[in-house]
Design a protein around this nucleic acid. Sequence first.
DNA 1: AGACCATGCACAAACGATTGCGCAAAACAG
DNA 2: CTGTTTTGCGCAATCGTTTGTGCATGGTCT
Lengths: 337, 337
Amino acid sequence: MGNKNNLAAISERTGYSVSTVSRVLSGKAEKYRISAEAIAKVTEEAHRCNYRPNLVAQSLRTRQSQTVGLVVPGIDNPFFATLASVITAQLSQRGYHTLLADSRETPEEEIQALEMFQDRNVDGIIAVPVASSPEYHERVSQDIPLVLIDRYFEKTSLSYVCTDNYAGAYMAAKYLADKGYKRILAIQGVPASMPNRERVRGFLTALNERGIENQVRGDAFSVENGRREALAAFSGNPKAFDAVFAFSSTILLGTISALRRLGITEGKDVGVISYDNNGFLDFMNPAVTRVEQPLQEAGEIAVSTLFSFMEARRAGLPHPAPVQQLIRPTLVVRESC
Amino acid sequence: MGNKNNLAAISERTGYSVSTVSRVLSGKAEKYRISAEAIAKVTEEAHRCNYRPNLVAQSLRTRQSQTVGLVVPGIDNPFFATLASVITAQLSQRGYHTLLADSRETPEEEIQALEMFQDRNVDGIIAVPVASSPEYHERVSQDIPLVLIDRYFEKTSLSYVCTDNYAGAYMAAKYLADKGYKRILAIQGVPASMPNRERVRGFLTALNERGIENQVRGDAFSVENGRREALAAFSGNPKAFDAVFAFSSTILLGTISALRRLGITEGKDVGVISYDNNGFLDFMNPAVTRVEQPLQEAGEIAVSTLFSFMEARRAGLPHPAPVQQLIRPTLVVRESC
DNA sequence: AGACCATGCACAAACGATTGCGCAAAACAG
DNA sequence: CTGTTTTGCGCAATCGTTTGTGCATGGTCT
């Protein structure tokens, strides 16, 4: 029993050369005018011994890996988990595999991940960036097609597909204003990140246009941050604000936990509204009104954009113009405000 | 500007041979008695041109890839997302990378993933299996170290680390019984999966021991299944059961949605208890009593077990005895029953 | 001085696939 | 019978790295 299972083995057993075997099995038979007989014998033998090409060797030789690198700031965050799910599904459907990295919100780990992707010859990269400037991503992008998702940079030539966070926050803030809330607190996430900055801008624009009292505080997309800031904001005065806009569902959880501890009932004493898709928000009591992002659509666009770049690259064409797309989120109205 | 960036380029620029350069840069300098001068010159040049080894070539030559394959049934499920997060963190800490695949609960995609892992020369595999029999995993395991997590097979020589689902369900059921509930419904997940079977066994054992009326229904770890089964169970008679045990947090959501539609208040009219770790459960009203699994610990054990196998393999030792470990879950008491 | 050893490095063969090029044999034309 | 074309396939280089082996050189010992 030959335990080797490579082209050379099939070559030996069929009597055809390695190159012929390769050409048959990689579907280039007629391009190289291989005889029907040779094709038959080789494919039969390949089936018989269940031949599978060594993707590492293939990748070394062809400089392609059928792999896309995906780096997110935290796969344990349901938001990014859903994103990863959508993206891997899309990739898998196109015969590509996913190399996953978690930057854990740190630029160093992000860079490591991107370097690793290059070292492994990935064919493309999809990234939720955490760096504060686009330089490194731009450098990588010269060698490997790259598309940003969810977060992006200002004045960059990088492609991205994100939701319109300005519009989302504006909608949410306007909704609160229309409902008659007068003093509105926003608890934000990572201040430097683009989605957060845009949300702040939308929030402030909507409320300042209407002359409604407001405040922004906080600094992380975490439960802990939500709890801390809500405690700080309300512990002196339970009526300091009559509504809270949590910039993520994690922040929301922290906020609610703080409110309850202070004896404030969310939805009744204080209106709450949140960002993020999360089925659980419907099952809280009251169910939480929120801004949902079309993740499925975003993932699909990101992947198809990436593939268009990859194809251009394979064809030796110049890099197509960057695709910079903002998708409108939707307001899902429930009972929390 | 030499745009090549490989050993050959450094070799040319330093005047040393490729092999010497390789040995210096892979830290085998003294093993091969390279002179201090050569080491200095080579490392300096490597730094200067920012050399990074081509991992694909390295992998082809050494048959190692510094990569572990991870296959889960659905990365969008928060439970598996957390698991993936724990595992990638552990791997990354040890200098390994993660090739992620999502089997979407289908055996075919699971097999594809495992084949792909082999084709890519991964050094090890961590899998949440969905197949109904261990055969394929066992075959793979002969070539590549493999550890199952969360789900496992009966009478198999495969290693696994799972939580003790029997104990968890037993605890939950006993808790309900002690609280005085008399007619208890369990809504289960995928019936064939080992965790589910064990939960059913624990549930039935605890209640039958005490002579408490019970029933098990349902067939998927999904919101939809929870909704459907709860509707079916309660729509004829709102008092058909006085407590529900949801076998996952997704099932729980569906159940609660159904109960509310029927005008039944969870926690008051009907006690509810759930499985799974999910921060949101604390923020529902009432907060949900549940069985939590020590995912961090499970991930750590799985990874360290896998590494012990990988090391044995590298050292040419026989495969160590399988590690089959059940970790005790904990009951987190809240107010929903 | 000759034998011997340690030192420091280069040669070249792998790993498993792809692919440009060219060589035979057969077919065909003149 | 010679010259050209077509057909079918093999040779060998290549991707970038690792590693067993061996060859000089220079030093030490007797």
